[in-house]
Amino acid sequence: MARELTHGASADSVGTRPRVAAQPFLRRNVPILALIGLLVVSGVYFSLASDTFLTLGNFLNIVRQSAPALILAVSMTMVMTTRGIDLSVGSLTAMVGGVGAVLMRDGWSVWAAIVVMCAIGVVAGSVNGFFVAYQGIPAFIVTLAGFTAFRGIALILTEGFSIPMRDERFVWLGQGTIRNVPVPVVIALVFGIIGWLVFNKTPFGMRLVAVGSNPEATRRSGVNTAALLLRVYVISGLAAAVAAIVIAARLGAGSSNAGLGLELEVITGVVLGGTSLFGGIGTMTGSLLGVFLIAMIANGLILLRLDPFYVPVVQGRFSWARCGCTPMWRVSATLRRDSF
């Protein structure tokens, strides 16, 4: 359907390049560079302070532990780039895990259960998406309802118990390895790569940024923005289902307590990464690094035998430190704009 611009045909018509500097690499990537700085500084500190921190085993350990959050960071980045938010994903992992456990307990095959789990994620996501995209209800309210309701359903299904899932093929998804790389790490990696490509290289990803930047302009450009928003919440629901499978398989059980606070961990990581809560700015790389940073800090502090009660406090401090970087690049952006 796309056509070439009709009035701009001839190839040799470009003379001197017009001014307005394309932003230099460094400036364009201030948020991510700040994050990498934090990663390096804390990484060096933990490496010096602990013998076991800087080993491949520990690295894989961190990624395996944060795999569900990494998977959700991909979809959360998309959602937040459209000016939305999805608070329901943590509870949704509990509900999906609970349903899977009940089904397998009742003799369903692993694959059928997995399909149903994914389908539940999609349906839950479309309910969220329907209210956000077609009813115009703020995503915060809609997904807050899901946040409460989904965990409630998980409690009803499991009656508050942890229901064991013993099938080896299922458990492999959370505990197995492929050539010494834990399966959850592989799943998170695949999710991250696909997410990055979709977000940066496809018309869909570009329109996500557009709708977050200026919804009305995007609509006037002929994009079906409601359908676009619906799809992004469906992706979020599906990602929650995948995260739920990884969590349940790792624990070998479906529990109504799975994914408690997971949505906030993900949102923290995504915001740390440089994605704007106000839409239009999103970075997949930043989100993955942000989630990894939070997990790495927890891991490092535990290796240093810090009282676990202090871990969230330190993580919070890191968020503040990262926020401190925000004004710096805001100022530089303002300076750039004024120079024209």
Binding site: A210, A217, G222, G280
Partner: peptide, 18 residues
């Protein structure tokens, strides 16, 4: 009706991307 965060080219082609 432009999207501030997109490039000029992406704005021009929004909705009919190449």
């Amino acid at each position: 009706a432009l999207c501030e965060h997109l490039t000029v080219a992406r704005n021009l082609y929004l909705g009919r991307e190449l």
